[in-house]
Amino acid sequence: MSIVDKPSTEILGAEDVSRAITRIAHEIIERNTDLSSVVIVGMQTGGTWIAERLCEAIERITGGTRVPLGAVDISMYRDDYSLRPIVLSAPTEIPVDLTERRVVLVDDVLFTGRTVRAALEALNDYGRPRAVQLAVMVDRGHRELPIRPDYVGKNIPTHPTDEVAVGSNGVFVSSESEAV
């Protein structure tokens, strides 16, 4: 944590976040005509609540279609484990064999893309999906790998040192103060 004061700006409110989730749910339904092959997988721990809300939204919109919901912990697949300590989040829970499934991977913020790379490697250990799509609440840019999202809540231009916080109460960006 920086001791420098970081003023925080609200980019999306709680309502906006709910609307974004509903819109992404519609897009998932539209893009995947055969919903029975879809599995929603949230990334531990920031993406899991969004994945749950997406499942609920899909069920509401379709009038009762439940798509399987999973969670993936990528801490043992990171490429930077020799650089920083690994903190284990909650364990992975994949309810179905992913072979031939369409997986919608869900995270809160897409930044360098390294977490997504690790998640793709982790998913492959649970079977070979037919396709993997990526849904994120915020795309903040600064990719270091050739990864792009299929569904985005909001594109937010940021500085690499900014911090982006995503919750059901909204999306907030805090920047280093100018007086550093």
Binding site: D73, M76, Y77, Y81, S82, L88, P91, N124, Y126
Partner: peptide, 23 residues
């Protein structure tokens, strides 16, 4: 013991291997 729960999950998969200690 909590970390071991993660490992038990890994051991239960068809591909019981992760790259965590590569190198």
């Amino acid at each position: 013991l909590d970390v071991a729960d993660h490992m038990t999950e890994i051991n239960s998969r068809s591909v019981a291997k992760v790259p965590a200690l590569r190198g």
